[in-house]
């Protein structure tokens, strides 16, 4: 099992803030909109550097999505910022009609996604956003795994023409991917080659998959670990190549079992290469208040849960 060095503990939302500032420095068409969460979204650096390109929209997310659509119509590249809950479910029809169906070049940037939002509880812990967004035709859906990758993804989406949903989170999280990496939308990243089971993980759970890989190695199990930072378009070739080799699959995500990465991979496999799939995800329930790590444990999204899923998947191999 390859060793991953943790270089820092940083929140992915700060990676977004840093990426937005850097992207805006070289592209004057980039504008930012925020619904009263500038500090939480780490957009204050952008706001200070480019006050005339930053739009405070107040607590009015539906209007924010429409404003972004209008700015995009006029050739701007709007980045909207609010919590993932208010970036998706609250404004789904605005995104569907005014942005996705209208082919607008809007970047919907969503923080505090998933259980790791923590103490604020289930009202704010959206676990359905990846599913909602991936169902929209033409929408690119990205869920990077750490600070460095979130920064790189933010820079990459600025250069991609079309609507994008970029999901990131609140807590400090291990940074283990390279600084100044190139981010290729839709290209899965091989983290560890293995032969017994393929683990496809996204977002914060990529780190849990790496920890699980180390635990599995101690048990003599060789896990292939792949970072699916782009849920849509899914890197089908990478998924199928790995599954062809290992013959069983685990998916891991901070999302409902319905509609997320696991669904996408299961659909791909069912249509091309039916194999055992085990899913590490929230099992059709809402979250609750607690510390991020406590919640990941309680809702079975921790490294030991990935290990158990891998063992189940291997046992199901014919």
């Amino acid at each position: 099992m390859k060793k991953f060095e943790v270089t820092a503990q940083k929140d992915t939302r700060s990676g977004f803030g840093a990426g937005l500032l850097e992207a805006a420095q070289s592209n004057e068409n980039i504008v930012g909109l925020c619904a009263d969460l500038t500090g939480s979204l780490m957009m204050d650096g952008f706001q200070k550097a480019f006050p005339h390109r930053f739009f405070q929209v107040g607590i009015a997310e539906a209007n924010m999505m429409g404003l972004a659509a209008g700015l995009a119509t006029a050739g701007k590249i709007p980045f909207t910022g609010t919590f993932a809950n208010f970036s998706t479910g609250r404004v789904y029809d605005q995104i569907r009609q005014s942005i996705a169906y209208s082919d607008k070049n809007v970047k919907i940037c969503a923080s505090h996604a998933g259980l790791t939002l923590g103490e604020d509880g289930a009202t704010h812990q959206i676990l359905e956003d990846l599913g909602l967004m991936k169902m929209l035709p033409g929408m690119v859906v990205i869920n990077p795994c750490d600070y460095n990758q979130t920064k790189a993804a933010t820079l990459a989406i600025a250069n991609h023409h079309g609507p994008v949903y970029l999901r990131f989170g609140r807590p400090k999280w291990p940074v283990f991917t390279p600084d100044n990496q190139q981010f290729e939308i839709g290209k899965a990243l091989m983290l560890n080659e293995g032969s017994d089971v393929s683990i496809f993980a996204t977002g914060h759970l990529v780190w849990k998959a790496i920890q699980a890989g180390e635990m599995l190695a101690e048990k003599g199990i060789s896990a292939e670990i792949i970072n699916i930072h782009t849920i849509k378009p899914l890197d089908a070739e990478a998924v199928l190549n790995s599954a062809r080799k290992t013959r069983c699959v685990v998916t891991a995500e901070e999302h409902q079992i319905n509609g997320g990465l696991g669904d996408s991979i299961a659909q791909l496999l069912v249509r091309n290469m039916p194999l055992p799939v085990e899913m590490v995800a929230v099992m059709d329930s809402f979250g609750e208040s607690g510390k991020p790590e406590e919640l990941l444990t309680k809702y079975h999204l921790d490294a030991p849960d990935v290990v158990a899923a891998a063992e189940r998947a291997i046992a199901r191999k014919s």
């Binding site: 924010m64 404003l67 209008g70 119509t73 009609q97 005014s98 169906y101 209208s102």
Partner: peptide, 29 residues
């Protein structure tokens, strides 16, 4: 709708309440 490329249409409307926000975005631009 814009999806079929009809000249003169700049945003899909009909789901009511959304056009004014889009217009505000164009006015900002």
């Amino acid at each position: 709708a814009t999806h079929e490329g009809l000249p003169g249409v700049r945003v899909a409307t009909g789901s009511l309440g959304q056009g004014l926000s889009v217009a505000c975005g164009m006015a900002l631009a």
